[in-house]
Design a protein around this nucleic acid. Sequence first.
DNA 1: ACATGCAAGGCTGTATGCAATTTTGCATGC
DNA 2: GCATGCAAAATTGCATACAGCCTTGCATGT
Lengths: 229, 229
Amino acid sequence: MSTAESNVDRLYETLRRMAADFAFKPDARINESALAAQLHASRTPIREALNRLVAEGFLTFRSGRGFFCRPLDPARVLDLYQARVAIECEAVRLACAHATTTQIEELRNWLDMIAPDYGPQTDVARMLELDEDFHRRLTALSGNAELIRLLDNLNDRIRYVRMIDLRRMQSGAVPQRDPVAAHRRILDSLASRNADAAASSMRKHIERRRDEVTEAVRAAYAQLYVPDA
Amino acid sequence: MSTAESNVDRLYETLRRMAADFAFKPDARINESALAAQLHASRTPIREALNRLVAEGFLTFRSGRGFFCRPLDPARVLDLYQARVAIECEAVRLACAHATTTQIEELRNWLDMIAPDYGPQTDVARMLELDEDFHRRLTALSGNAELIRLLDNLNDRIRYVRMIDLRRMQSGAVPQRDPVAAHRRILDSLASRNADAAASSMRKHIERRRDEVTEAVRAAYAQLYVPDA
DNA sequence: ACATGCAAGGCTGTATGCAATTTTGCATGC
DNA sequence: GCATGCAAAATTGCATACAGCCTTGCATGT
């Protein structure tokens, strides 16, 4: 075994990233042998990783025909966003009930700390990372490991489109809103233990992107099908 | 290849059922070779199926050590129920907005049709099936494929404990409530397009089982660890 | 009696080979 | 020109083999 720590884990992570970034074009067949050669591994571990990605919703599998990249379709993206609403609204409700005041203050401090980093001039990837991080930390305050798991999965599958959405926003196509403000509002409701208000803020915060993202998916279509890899 | 249609699919289904039913005891290591011999297959397809089950939350995997059955722990079961609340409440909200009146009436007719089957005298497995079916159909009215996917997965992972819970109810340990009544109440709110009321009914309906299920998990502990397989 | 190190066995990690199936390109007939 | 059938090539499905790690039980020393 080549690496002392874990060869297959990095293999899996690589494939996961490739799937998340649409390194495989939507609906395209995935050639196991080619992948194996490209990643300097054999087909067996590749197939294991691909099977996991199927279960996680990144790929599809047709018996006897192999693995395919998931389609990139606006309706699906909306579904994923709606699922985020479900998960995160309930998470913030639970956080209202269960999170300690100390935990909430820690999250507020974290938000204050990274706030300067979080402006229109920031690198898109960094901004996305910070945004996901906030939502993840907030969800973690629910104390519910399953909700965190589900959110992580959804974020992985949405990330590509969000990136495109953020690029459009930064390029000025859409009026830019202060992203930190919405987060502070949610935290305020959480601090005052107002579950309905917190959930409502969260819902609006996430749903607000819906139309933007629909647009972004159309842009993604163009970006995916035009440049030949 | 033995079966014309698909050998690995049935293999996967078998393992999935075994995992759902805790044919592997919680936290027990899963021996790939033994499984392969038992199911008349080789390790390769077994491992592929196990990897999928890891991604679906049925099993855990530790690099270099193999696959393990998920632990059966009350806190986790609560997490899963809470996730159901998140998914189903949002689903019924979406259904209020998007489902056609015809669809709602169809669901009500279905409920009327199966209502006679759905009493205290009914077989536990049948009752569970009907209950899951109702919730699934309701979630389907959201028109959101991702929410259905998530609910299916949660139900698969909760089913074992629900079964035990239902058995206790039927044996008279807990005062029996009419399960159809709660479903009708949710449908009524849905029919009148009252999203808040529908979500609220759904939340109460699911959360009501919480303490029962906590008890049921303790019973499951006993049932799992005493009889030697 | 208890801790520690070592060795053997078992199990996982993955490469590879082959059979079966699907795909594809071409030839043939309508 | 288009559909159809066939054969070759590519690809998947899976069994097997083997290398290396993890576990475990025993022996040895304190």
